[in-house]
Each structure stands twice: as structure tokens, then as C-alpha cells.
């Protein structure tokens, strides 16, 4: 993986809009979940999958706006602390900085970055939750959410590749 620092590639609006809508959709779905082996696993980490495959060519300012409002939307939809998910999305995007990557993630790198994303989200959610409620979170719940989201990661990754190849003629959609 290489990072660009001197080139000035064109930032496109369209990938940012599509990625933002996908993030809002994933945020809405994060209220739902599935019962697996007697435990309930929520789709709470689905929006993080969208963050992990955020287009490199997406306009950065529009991306930040979408991340903030999708985060607030998630907080409203899941009745959690207002600002918590917005902070998680923004910090993770700030760490990943997809627009600075020179080439798409290889599958192994994507998986490693995904694990780092989940780890960072767990730390941020735990710290903010502890700050507001004064208690530590249910780490089992985090584990179940991570597991379900990890299963969906390759599916969404492949879907994203197919859509980008079919509907786009350029490298706008490169991971």
C-alpha cells in the first residue's frame, strides 16, 4: 500500500454521495439483528464495513459531512448517546483516510484494517459510554456485532467491486 502526499487527484462528488447513502442505509439496518445460537447479534457494526470500503476518490469535505450526519442518524435510530457514532465514524475515517491511499487494499490488508477499525470503534464506544454512563460496556455484545459484520465484509466488498466495474468507467470507485 502506498500513500500519496504530493499528487492532487480529482475528488469526485458522486462516489461520496453513493458511499454516504450506503452509510445511512447501513446505519438504519444497524437497529436490526439476528438470533444466533441463542444470543442476539445486532447489525451494529455494518456501517463500519461501509467505512472500510469507502471510495478513495470521494470528495473529502462531502464525506466528512455524510459521516457526521450518518453518525447522528445512527445515534437517533439506536437511542444511543448523541454524538457517539458520529465520533466513531469521523475518527475511523480520519485514521483510514481512504483518499490518501495510492492503491486498493489487498484482501489481507483489508481484513487487517477491518480488525483495527473494529478495535478502534470498541475503544471509542467504551470510553464515551463510560464517560456518560459511568459503567463499562457489555464486551460480549461488541464481539457478536463484530462477528456478524466480519461475515458481511467480503460480501459487501465483492458487491462494491461488481457495482463499480459495471456502472463506472473510471477508477473513481477504487478501494
Amino acid at each position: 500500500m502506498t500513500y500519496l502526499d504530493t499528487q492532487a487527484p480529482i475528488r469526485r462528488l458522486w462516489p461520496a454521495v453513493v458511499a454516504g447513502i450506503a452509510l445511512l442505509f447501513a446505519s438504519a439496518l444497524s437497529v436490526g439483528g439476528v438470533h444466533v445460537f441463542g444470543a442476539f447479534a445486532r447489525f451494529g457494526f455494518f456501517p463500519l464495513v461501509v467505512l472500510a470500503i469507502w471510495p478513495r476518490q470521494a470528495n473529502t469535505l462531502l464525506s466528512i459531512a455524510f459521516l457526521f450526519f450518518a453518525g447522528i442518524f445512527t445515534d437517533w435510530a439506536t437511542a444511543s448517546i448523541i454524538g457517539q457514532w458520529a465520533l466513531v465514524y469521523l475518527v475511523i475515517w480520519g485514521v483510514l483516510r481512504p483518499e490518501l491511499r495510492g492503491s486498493p487494499f489487498a484482501p489481507v490488508s483489508l481484513f487487517l484494517f477491518w480488525l483495527a477499525t473494529c478495535g478502534l470503534a470498541v475503544v471509542l464506544l467504551s470510553v464515551t459510554g463510560w464517560f456518560v454512563y459511568g459503567v463499562l460496556p457489555d464486551f460480549g455484545s461488541f464481539g457478536r456485532q463484530m462477528l456478524v459484520a466480519t461475515l458481511i465484509l467480503p460480501v459487501l466488498g465483492v458487491m462494491r467491486g461488481v457495482i463499480s466495474r459495471r456502472f463506472s468507467d473510471s477508477e473513481d470507485w477504487e478501494r
Partner: peptide
């Protein structure tokens, strides 16, 4: 601009959390 916008959005999020 990206850094300023990101920092501002993070600060606003932190403020919203602190209000809770």
C-alpha cells in the same frame, strides 16, 4: 480544509457527547 473540517466535526461530536 479537510483537516479543519474533520477536526471541527470531531470537536462538535465530543461536545454533543458531553451534553449527554
Amino acid at each position: 480544509w479537510t483537516r479543519i473540517a474533520l477536526s471541527l466535526a470531531i470537536i462538535v461530536s465530543c461536545l454533543l457527547i458531553s451534553f449527554n
